[in-house]
């Protein structure tokens, strides 16, 4: 008897639909948003906080599964995404869609139960924005796809802040702004050394629409704005001196590597690769500094 490949799918293949690495970054930034909210005076039971973070993480995973359902055709022609469960034939498109929809509904319902309707509404909007606005509409139609679509990835700390406090004050939106401004240079650095991949898939990323030189200039401009926005939490009191030191040092590093990208020879992959790797460390370092300061303030 000849079985289809999907008959050999294990639980780990369905877990891969949730984009675990993206999910872990979402949970981390959400945790920082929640702890900052508590440090700001909000109060939430630790068990309910954990359930809320779980709901936010599952919601992010659900949007990942729905994105893989919608983008199955382009995932199968890009080297970076070829090994995903749908292009491998391990999971059917319809199964990924059903899985994503079910988890979306359960995550929003759980967040409403564990925290409040503001947070649940924001989570539902985040999933909608990522799947419908970014994946279905912007990704294949404009090189500004990840600029606007980046809002979905930037919302988790706001959702978590709302989960703890029921509100989304300016400080929550500063965290949003940092991730939002970080997204274009992060993804354009990736697109610079994966340009062929995106061009083959017909995805209008900045390098294969505006050209390499223009993309490098835009990366540098975003790096300047990001380095400034990165120290904003200190100005509003959200971050302290440790945060100021970390955000200044990493902001300078981001600027230097973006400058290297700008000055790198055409088709050079090394500088964009370095910037891409550093950009992940940048976001982690800034949010970890905020988390450390808030935990110290709460328990010291």
């Amino acid at each position: 008897m000849v079985e289809s490949r999907s008959a050999f799918a294990g639980p780990q293949d369905y877990f891969a639909l949730l984009k675990p690495r993206v999910m872990s970054l979402v949970i981390f930034t959400a945790l920082v948003g929640m702890v900052a909210s508590v440090a700001d005076g909000a109060s939430i039971n630790p068990g309910l906080a954990a359930a809320s973070l779980l709901a936010i993480g599952v919601g992010a995973g659900a949007s990942g599964a729905l994105n893989m359902w919608w983008d199955a055709d382009i995932d199968s022609v890009m080297a970076r995404t070829l090994t995903r469960p749908i292009p491998q034939g391990l999971v059917q498109k319809s199964e990924a869609a059903g899985f994503g929809l079910l988890l979306s509904a359960l995550s929003v319902a759980l967040l409403a139960l564990a925290s409040n309707y503001v947070a649940a509404g924001l989570l539902a909007f985040t999933i909608f924005f990522y799947v419908v606005i970014y994946s279905m509409w912007l990704k294949r139609s404009t090189p500004q796809n990840i600029v606007i679509g980046g809002a979905a990835g930037a919302l988790p700390p706001v959702v978590a802040w709302a989960a703890a406090s029921g509100t989304a004050p300016t400080d929550a939106w500063i965290l949003f702004a940092i991730i939002f401004l970080w997204t274009p240079p992060h993804f354009w650095a990736l697109a610079l050394y994966r340009e062929g991949d995106y061009a083959r898939a017909g995805v209008p990323m900045m390098p294969n629409v505006a050209g390499e030189a223009s993309t490098k200039k835009q990366i540098f401009v975003y790096a300047i704005i990001l380095a400034i926005a990165g120290v904003f939490p200190y100005a509003t009191g959200l971050g302290g001196v440790v945060y100021l030191a970390v955000s200044s040092a990493f902001g300078a590093g981001f600027l230097i590597l973006s400058w290297r990208v700008l000055k790198s020879p055409p088709r050079s992959k090394e500088a964009p690769k370095q910037l891409f790797a550093f950009s992940i460390m940048y976001l982690f370092a800034l949010f970890a500094a905020l988390l450390a300061e808030d935990i110290y303030a709460l328990y010291a």
Partner: peptide, 29 residues
């Protein structure tokens, strides 16, 4: 067929554990 059956059992077990975990979380919340 045997390999496929083993994978199906693993998927069924994962669904059962997922549902049980969700029920437990909702109960605790």
């Amino acid at each position: 067929t045997l390999e496929a059956r083993k994978k199906r059992d693993q998927r069924s077990l994962a669904i059962a554990l997922g549902l049980a975990s969700f029920m437990l979380v909702v109960f605790l919340v």
